[in-house]
Design a protein around this nucleic acid. Structure first.
Lengths: 251, 251
DNA sequence: GAGTGGTCTAGACCACCAG
DNA sequence: TGGTGGTCTAGACCACTCC
């Protein structure tokens, strides 16, 4: 293995630490840094990446969060022996991007955009008054063509720059990206986990043979943090037999 | 409200940033910093707490993670309007402590400690050879006397200082605390979420009337990080009708 | 003792938001 | 325009691990 690599960071996107993290991710993915390898000491690694040590540490911490690296005090930093390919539920990304990160091809069927008035339950979830206008999106997500989740999303119309901003939403678009472009980034979500038995409609949409239970993720999304307005409420029903839902917990 | 407070940090525990975070937590809990209040600017706040600005920022970041504070660039840092009382699944604590943090009284019934040999499935989960000796704990957890989860835990015997180290495990003890005392802290877990229909045994142990689905948390616990030996494998079946399982996700 | 990661500091410059 | 948080740096000292 080439042990004398060094890299340059492209000067544009995100923070310097995240760019350094991306670069390390590539080096790991490409096998330059093989599983189990010890990385150079932090000052040396910082020098090679052209950043300061605190910035390098931010990058390494990010990769540790993704379970790609392990730090051992007084010993060194190592590439994980068996790195998990993607991240877990603790990280908030769009469903489509989540599927793509697993190495599968995301798709959408049965997309429908409607304008509705919030019923009491929905109003409570969105922290608005009942009867307030809301844009409702429903669609079924597929991974490599196999339906894995049915998704329903609701956005209060008054948070959009114009009421029809989502009317032309495309089947292959990312709702996260579209809302971010509209000035409604989804940075945080509080998610309730509920196992449910699918009804006939869900069985049909997900093409389920049995009535094995699904996992419902009921999520309130916030642009910055709770206390702000709820930007999006969603109910996503996952068929965990077809898509594994994992989570990394830290003490 | 007193707006001219300043504090000293006790010099002992944890990192300086965490101690500063604790101090801020107290100020919020005691109402010195009321919900919605803007905090002093970071350099000023750092001065009052007697730490540098990066250290203060670590403290504030910690409290933002606990949803107690909100940062707005160019505006200020604010105490959350409606802080959530407890944390979600993204944080790893023992089941008992988790129940206590919800303000309920944790309890245990049907505790049983057995020495078994790993079958192939268990061996794979623990990353050991089939037939390796393992200590198995099973118990049902209650909150205010109501059964909320049935738990099965497995620890490879060779990781214990002596094979019988868990034989005298008490019904009201914390397995997390006991393992930490034995030199096996559980700092991280990779959790699979699986909705399941309870069998007759589970219905009986959890005193369930219906066969509404449960949420199974299948967890591999690591002392430091993946790549290490699996210190504990567990299967916990939660009745989400009796105990709400939530999760905070960040983008 | 030599080398590693863990922590903390002081100071700088920038991007953003409000008046 | 002035104040805020966002980022980054260089350097220091400590605690731990291993030889």
């Amino acid at each position: 293995m080439d042990t004398n690599w060094s890299v340059r960071l492209d000067p544009e996107t995100r923070t310097l630490g995240s760019r350094a993290a991306s670069r390390l991710r590539e080096l790991i993915r490409d096998g330059v840094l093989a599983p189990g390898t010890r990385l150079p000491a932090e000052p040396e690694l910082a020098r090679r990446l052209g950043v300061s040590r605190p910035t390098l540490r931010a990058a390494v911490t990010e990769l540790i969060g993704d379970l790609l690296l392990v730090r051992r005090r007084g010993v060194g930093t190592f590439v994980s022996a068996a790195p998990r390919p993607a991240h877990g539920l603790e990280r908030l990304t769009g469903t489509g991007r989540d599927i793509a990160l697993r190495g599968q091809r995301p798709g959408t069927t049965g997309l429908r955009v409607r304008h509705v008035l919030a019923n009491p339950a929905l109003a409570a979830a969105l922290c608005v008054e009942p009867g307030v206008p809301v844009v409702q999106l429903t669609r079924t997500r597929t991974a490599d063509g196999v339906p894995v989740a049915h998704c329903a999303d609701w956005v209060p119309t008054d948070l959009l720059p114009e009421p029809g901003a989502l009317d032309a939403f495309g089947a292959e678009e990312s709702l996260h990206d579209r809302l971010a472009a509209l000035g409604l980034p989804l940075r945080q979500a509080v998610t309730r986990l509920v196992p449910v038995v699918p009804d006939a409609d869900l069985r049909d949409r997900l093409d389920l043979a049995s009535d094995a239970p699904l996992l419902l993720l009921e999520q309130r999304h916030f642009p910055v943090a709770p206390g702000d307005r709820v930007a999006l409420f969603s109910r996503h029903w996952y068929d965990t037999a077809r898509i594994d839902l994992q989570l990394v917990r830290r003490g």
